[in-house]
Design a protein around this nucleic acid. Structure first.
Length: 263
DNA sequence: ATGGTGGATGCTCCA
């Protein structure tokens, strides 16, 4: 099974890139974030026509929004609210024969890395804590789970273009890195991408729109992740960050991340 | 130190 996570920054603007995306990733399952569209306007038919007829969509007007689009059938699927908000930031699907998939869009957190001064940052920290508590409370921590999404945290020093310069920049602050680590530990998740790419090697999945030349300045961050639960660790086959997508027209500021798992 | 761009929306917010 190949699973691709991609923050599309508007699914309707990115829809024409789908055939290329499918050709490049061979995805059986897509986890999309920032779809930015209400469910009734989601381009369901375009995905179905390409073979992704199993869909769970949780969107809202203008902001956020997630979707799982799959060639493989679901046994059950749904969406969940976090932090008592009805932001659409999480969808899940249990494959009929395969793992349970969770797709997350963690709050970006605003600009000021102080929860007292910035309620968006407070929300982000609360979200990370609540997610860790939720997975930690699962009765059996043995289910095969793939957790993917834009987690809006770059945990390793090599996940950002400058560890020192980003220590006080939201996405790479010590408290965010600690809370993301707690979330991983809550279910003993394994970072499926770093399983293949050594931590010493720089790796990014996002480059700001605000650079004159994103590739030349290369000030990226690895915000998009795929984690697997321990039982799937030995089933991991490959991981790939599809950097050329940053030059697609029109580009998302995030690129697709694909993981291949034997299931 | 600052502002830079892009998306959805509707004369601004969010990333």
């Amino acid at each position: 099974m190949r699973l691709t996570t991609w923050n599309v920054n508007s699914v309707r603007l990115r829809i024409d890139l789908l055939p290329e995306l499918i050709a490049r990733t061979g995805a059986d399952v897509f986890c999309l974030q920032e779809t930015k569209v209400v469910d009734q306007d989601f381009p369901r038919a375009a995905f179905a026509a390409l073979g992704y007829e199993h869909q769970v969509i949780s969107g809202q007007k203008s902001h956020h929004g997630v979707a799982i689009l799959s060639r493989l059938p679901f046994k059950t699927s749904g969406a969940r609210n976090w932090c008592d908000k009805d932001d659409r930031r999480h969808a899940w699907a249990k494959l009929a024969s395969g793992p349970e998939i969770h797709n997350f869009y963690v709050p970006a957190g605003g600009d000021i890395p102080d929860p007292d001064a910035n309620e968006k940052f407070a929300h982000k920290l609360a979200f990370l804590r609540e997610a860790a508590a939720w997975f930690g409370a699962q009765k059996s921590r043995k289910a095969p789970i793939v957790l993917a999404g834009d987690l809006n945290v770059a945990p390793l020093e090599t996940d950002v273009w400058s560890h020192k310069q980003l220590l006080d920049v939201v996405s790479h602050t010590p408290i965010e890195v600690e809370l993301l680590g707690n979330w991983m530990a809550s279910y003993k998740f394994v970072d499926a991408v770093r399983h293949f790419v050594p931590p010493a090697e720089r790796l990014y999945s996002w480059w700001s729109y605000r650079a004159a030349d994103w590739a030349k300045s290369d000030r990226g961050r690895r915000l998009d992740h795929v984690w697997v639960s321990p039982v799937l660790k030995d089933h991991l086959r490959a991981a790939h960050v599809f950097k050329p997508a940053r030059d697609w027209k029109p580009p998302s500021d995030h690129v697709p991340v694909t993981v291949e798992i034997n299931v």
